[in-house]
Nucleic acid binder design. Structure first.
Lengths: 141, 141
DNA sequence: AGATACTTGACTATTTTAGTCAGGTTTATA
DNA sequence: TATAAACCTGACTAAAATAGTCAAGTATCT
């Protein structure tokens, strides 16, 4: 059970963006250099973040990306959701007639995995980008 | 982020074992049939569980497996640990000189992933096999 | 005009997963 | 003591997911 790079990078990049998100847009190139993430990969990630309206792009020279909402309103859930980082604990197919389908037949551990999924998602729902930035600034003193 | 089959199967098999763990050992063949898990794969899993002293094997005809501890004392952590299902959120190498190594340099989100890992592991530490069996019996009435 | 920076989509090597397969060894019981 | 049930081990592999790279644009500020 592990977190993929895509999810991790998305959060790292957004924390970076939030920290430098004063007046000017932040270019992916800068984020790439500071966070050590490939520029091409960042572009893929930000394309998704833009579609989900988490960031806005500013084109042209001196362009880059800006947060589209307040850091407080951007939760980890939103970020992971945008880049398709999903928490999957159950494999049971909804339409399977034999075995566990989550309705008529439940495998012995079905409820457990549901609980686990909720447990993890709760964590993601609570944490906002602002929390992360603050946490980071405190540790930098 | 997802749970692998190995971890899921291990828990399913142990719940099954715990339920039928009265006097006689339970054969993998029976578990395989009841839970729909390949026998060969189960053998791999139980080999690991035995090494970590979570189950005991009984050889010969009428043989099979028995729990090696009380169901209450077997936590999900123990099970996942035995089958190498680990929760990995951080990728930062301990010995890397450049970038995040978890000590001298911390990436902006290092603490976050640590927190997440703890959050998930807490869930695993609390849940015991007994909890799962009970939960299952209640829902069967 | 031209540099900068975003945008898109296709492609691919590597790794992980989820098993299968083959060939054992052990031991209860008839 | 033969034999069948059941455990035990390790090597192998197909398929899927991951983590990117690469190429070829398009938009816009100066």
């Amino acid at each position: 059970m592990k977190l993929t790079s895509k999810g991790r990078y998305a959060v790292m990049a957004l924390v970076d963006l939030a920290r430098f998100n004063n007046i000017n847009p932040v270019s992916l190139r800068d984020i790439s250099l500071r966070q050590g993430i490939s520029l091409d990969y960042l572009e893929q990630i930000f394309s998704k973040l833009r579609k989900k309206e988490i960031v806005q792009s500013v084109r042209g020279t001196q362009g880059g990306y800006v947060l589209n909402k307040k850091a407080k309103e951007i939760k980890l859930t939103n970020i992971f959701d945008a880049v398709d980082e999903k928490v999957k604990t159950v494999q049971c197919k909804k339409d399977s007639k034999k075995g566990c389908n989550g309705k008529t037949t439940k495998c012995v551990t079905h409820n457990l995995w549901d609980e686990l999924e909720n447990h993890i998602n709760n964590f993601f729902k609570e944490k906002s980008l602002e929390d992360l930035v603050k946490d980071n600034q405190e540790r930098r003193i």
